[in-house]
């Protein structure tokens, strides 16, 4: 589909083995697919539809509905910067500028080596920790532009392990 090369199906087979072949498992399967591939590849979606016996249109509908899912490849680590009111006031924009400088991409974009994707989020509900920046699964409260390189390096180290 889309003339794109097929992705490796092995992780998908493993994911599908964990769930019953029914529509009820759709969102969990898509979440696991997203974690394994860092996005929802279209040929994988077609296989999910087949395996769970859900119409492809439904799978696409769910995949496009939730913001947690992306249909374009994402970096291995998602860098989220909170731009809610509290974070904005406490310097979210300076954080974004520093991340943009370090990774040489803008919010919504992914580095060429597929390492990082920058995203801005409206509020993560941790205003007391403002400004908040989330690298992968790690929350950094009171984030400082000067420490951005360190935050990013920590996950890079994770990747290498």
């Amino acid at each position: 589909m889309n003339g794109r090369p097929c992705v490796d199906a092995a992780p998908l087979d493993e994911i599908l083995a964990h769930y019953p072949a029914s529509e009820t498992a759709l969102i969990q399967v898509l979440q696991d697919v997203h974690r394994a591939y860092h996005y929802l590849p279209c040929d994988v979606l077609a296989k999910v539809a087949d395996a769970l016996d859900v119409p492809l249109a439904k799978v696409f509908s769910v995949g496009t509905f939730y913001k947690a899912f992306s249909l374009v490849p994402q970096g291995r680590t998602i860098v989220r910067v909170c731009t809610g009111t509290a974070c904005h006031i406490r310097g979210a924009s300076r954080l974004i500028e520093e991340i943009e400088r370090q990774l040489e991409i803008k919010p919504g974009e992914t580095t060429e080596d597929m390492g990082f994707t920058i995203k801005t989020v409206n509020c993560v509900g941790a205003c007391a920790m403002a400004p908040v920046m989330i690298v992968g699964e790690t929350y950094h409260g009171g984030a400082e532009p000067a420490k951005v390189a360190k935050y990013l390096a920590e996950t890079e180290a994770d990747h290498e392990n």
Binding site: L45, P55, A57, K58, V59, S61, T64, F65, Y66
Partner: peptide, 19 residues
């Protein structure tokens, strides 16, 4: 048949076939 469904959410929501 379920060939079409709603795609996206909010202001960008539309009816479309998969992909």
């Amino acid at each position: 048949v379920s060939a079409i469904a709603t795609v996206d959410r909010g202001a960008g929501k539309e009816v479309a076939p998969p992909f």
